[in-house]
Amino acid sequence: MNIHDTQAVSRHRQENTHPEDWEATFRNMALFDLAADMELGFFLSYYRNFAIPSIASTLHSNAEIQERPMKRSYDTAIVIYELIACGLDSERGREMVGLLNRVHRNVPGSKDDFLYVLLTLLVVPIRWTQKHAWRQPTTAELAAAVRFFSELGSRMSMASVPRTYAEAEAFFDAYEAAHVAPSAEGQRLMDTTVQVFQSRLPAPLRPLAKQIISTMLDDDHLTAALGLPNSTRASRAALKTGLAVRNTISRRRPLKKHPHFTPGKAGSSLYPNGYSLDQIGPVNVPHSPAARSNELS
């Protein structure tokens, strides 16, 4: 399969899906065709919350990130990937939605704060793929992603969740313009969480962790609020070159046949042998009986 065939097959399949197959379309985007870039986008979305002083204050007072930074980071990713892989209305999906509702039940914040947190998971990964992925996301993929997070928001009793990607972007940008600012709590959360990223880097690159994150975020106002160093011409060039090489290789390879994530078996130093659903989430939040009885398959 040559470079043009790979792109054409992927784009054609994803563009010609039925609108009511939105969950499968988004699943294929996030777990197969654009999996690596969607993961990077989800990774970057996690940090943006620390740049909002009201959200950072809530997260800091909870102390979960400071006490268990690796667990909070991995569990956040596992929850969203469980929902994508299994479906919102699957048994495992309902457990994860229930966990999200229990975690947020008594959390202070405005409806716009909660909507912003949800939309970071939509807008940030999409923008990353539009700018850096081996191919552009299709119109059908954008619609499917919006529908996925709109449905998730509805299951979390959120009102006024955007129904189009343009509406989501407009809310996201207006919210950040009004609320991104430095805070001591946000910078402490950032400093704590950087350790998790460092642990995943090769040893020679670990001292550059903050610089790498800053370059990937590519937003001076945001990185200043997070207490990160400015990106440099050299770091931007290195990122651009590295992604260009990766994308050239990706375009010449056959499409992925195995998903980026397998429920219950996500490999990490935290869950090296897999996990059951009752292990996921803050230690002080109770799980439902179904989650407690859920065993690894």
Rank of each mutant, 00 (worst) to 15 (best):
T232N: 04
V196Y: 07
I78W: 05
R11D: 12
T164P: 03
H12Q: 09
L44C: 08
A35H: 13
V196D: 00
Y275P: 03
V97P: 08
G242H: 09
N230E: 11
S250P: 00
D113H: 13
S235Q: 00
T223H: 02
T164K: 10
E64W: 12
A170E: 14
A56S: 13
E91W: 04
A224T: 10
V194G: 01
F149G: 03
M70E: 11
T192G: 02
R253P: 04
R48P: 01
A224Y: 02
S183P: 07
L208C: 12
M156Y: 04
K71I: 06
V124L: 01
A168I: 09
T6Y: 02
D278A: 13
S10M: 04
L243H: 07
N230K: 14
R147Q: 14
Q195T: 14
Q195C: 08
P282K: 08
Q211G: 12
T129W: 03
E176R: 13
L255R: 06
I212D: 04
R135C: 11
K265G: 03
R68C: 05
L119R: 00
V117S: 07
Q195V: 12
V123T: 09
T76I: 01
V103D: 02
S61P: 00
A36D: 14
T138C: 05
Y81G: 06
V107G: 03
P204F: 13
T232Q: 08
L277S: 02
A36F: 12
G98M: 05
T76N: 03
A140D: 11
A234S: 09
H132K: 09
I3F: 12
R253L: 15
S54T: 14
M96T: 04
S154L: 13
I212R: 03
A133V: 10
R11C: 06
Q187N: 02
P289Y: 04
R27Q: 14
A291F: 12
Q136R: 14
G153E: 01
A181Q: 05
I126T: 15
F148C: 02
F172E: 00
V146C: 09
R72D: 01
P204T: 10
R200I: 05
A30S: 14
Y165G: 05
L189H: 06
Q195K: 15
G98Q: 08
I78Q: 04
L226W: 10
Q136Y: 10
R200N: 10
L44A: 05
Y275Q: 02
A77N: 11
N247A: 12
A51Y: 11
H260L: 07
K210G: 01
M190I: 09
T192Q: 01
D191E: 06
H18A: 12
R147T: 15
Q130V: 09
R127I: 05
T164N: 00
V245Q: 00
P137T: 11
I212A: 06
R92P: 04
A266M: 03
L99V: 05
E95S: 14
A225K: 09
